[in-house]
Design a binder for these strands. Structure first.
Length: 389
DNA sequence: TCTGGGGTCCTAGGACCC
DNA sequence: TCTGGGGTCCTAGGACCC
């Protein structure tokens, strides 16, 4: 019988701040931006802050109104990643198969570990104790015979919670929940549920698979049909399809100036290029994203014969695409860019190095890799190129 | 009080080929 | 001279997650 733990750190970023700063403990901590920041949103609110109604994705300005006495922080991703690494390493003591889902949550496959590590209930207790003792953080856990149910279970008893769904009880467990607890059904789907008078998972359970498919489409309809029965959903299978990377920036005030826009684009390209070289990925498809002052958003993408090799090449491709998409004279609220369909270096290696010899792109690429290495070795050096210097 | 940033997956439609 | 149909690649947009 398969069995899984879903482990989810409580208010992770805010908890790390409270751990690192004694004086923050017991006080409302809001990570995401400082009071007065334009267009920042809450990334994580501590439980003390949630009492005031502050929650993730809320504009900082609104959080300040609700909780003027809160401690506001921009956040320190490097520190959170470090802490996350400690915890994930700890999880390895409890399962031979740990699947990290995001910076603050993971599935632990504990199938067949009972003889070695004890019954699941006790295992979960020890895991919580050890995380607390070694990292000072609390974790909520859900245990079930499939990942989907375990994931939902862990969310029910936060913070510092433990929910155990015994084998055979998955369907009854799901039937006890309101539709708001269905993982994968966001605001738009909740509206559809409400419009049709579907309040509980039991209401969904009463609809045929055919009906669900006719309402929600083949993929999501079948997903819902299975989800409310507590059946394993394919959502968390390890196999990942295509990869992409992107970077974007929302401006404090709409941008109109061509030079300012192009500079921002170049800056984004630089971020992307260095990440691309660092990860040793290749991509032939570039994407540009534009958001105007009225929040309307458009994107364009283009696939080329050859993968992007240099920063200048990336910038040329994106600038060209940008000019074809951008409606001149409209204020730019957000500018983003990305590289899609990432493939490992091997795919293009032959072609790349055959042609990279004497030509300038090859030289440029090696120069960029050198700069990347120097920057990694001496983080303070801040070697930059081109128009940003 | 207007709505971050970095991802994945799905759908629908067009182009093109056989 | 009425508009087949499947497969593949590509684009745009949207929903959702943390």
């Amino acid at each position: 019988m398969p069995y899984f733990i879903h482990a989810d750190l409580d208010a992770f970023y805010a908890s790390v701040e409270q751990l690192d700063h004694r004086e923050y403990r017991g006080r409302p901590v809001i990570v995401g931006g400082l009071p007065g920041d334009r267009r920042s949103v809450v990334s994580t609110a501590s439980y003390e802050a949630r009492v005031f109604g502050v929650h993730s994705a809320m504009p900082i300005a609104e959080a300040v109104r609700l909780c003027p006495g809160g401690i506001y922080l921009r956040g320190n991703m490097a520190r959170y990643r470090e802490k996350s690494g400690e915890i994930m390493a700890l999880f390895d003591n409890f399962s031979p198969q740990v699947q990290q889902l995001s910076i603050d949550e993971a599935f632990l496959d504990i199938t067949g570990t009972e003889g070695l590590l004890g019954p699941p209930d006790r295992l979960a207790d020890r895991l919580k104790e050890q995380v607390q003792k070694e990292t000072g953080l609390t974790v909520s856990v859900g245990l079930a015979s499939n990942k989907y149910v375990a994931k939902i279970a862990s969310g029910l008893s936060k913070p510092d919670g433990k929910s155990i769904i015994p084998p055979g009880a998955e369907e009854a467990f799901m039937l006890s929940l309101p539709v708001s607890k269905i993982w994968g059904a966001g605001p738009k789907t909740q509206e559809v549920f409400a419009a049709r008078g579907l309040k509980s998972c039991a209401d969904i359970h009463g609809l045929s698979e055919k009906t669900l498919v006719s309402i929600f489409g083949a993929s999501f309809g079948v997903f819902l049909y299975r989800a409310v029965r507590g059946e394993a959903a394919a959502a968390f299978d390890e196999e990942r399809g295509s990869h992409s990377m992107s970077a974007e920036r929302t401006f404090d005030f709409e941008l109109y100036d061509a030079f300012a826009i192009e500079t921002a684009l170049f800056d984004i390209c630089q971020t992307l290029m260095w990440r691309l070289l660092d990860q040793k990925w290749h991509s032939r498809t570039v994407m540009v994203k534009i958001r105007y002052g009225d929040f309307s958003t458009e994107s364009g993408r283009e696939t080329f014969e050859t993968p992007v090799r240099t920063l200048n090449e990336l910038y040329d491709r994106l600038l060209n695409l940008f000019h074809r998409k951008y409606r001149k004279g409209r204020g730019l609220r957000l500018l983003g860019a990305g590289l899609m369909n990432l493939e490992t270096k091997k795919v293009y290696q032959g072609e790349l190095f055959d042609r990279a010899g004497p030509d300038s792109a090859g030289r440029e690429q090696r120069l960029e890799e050198t700069i990347l290495k120097i920057n990694k070795k001496f983080p303070g050096a801040a070697l930059k190129r081109g128009r940003l210097v």
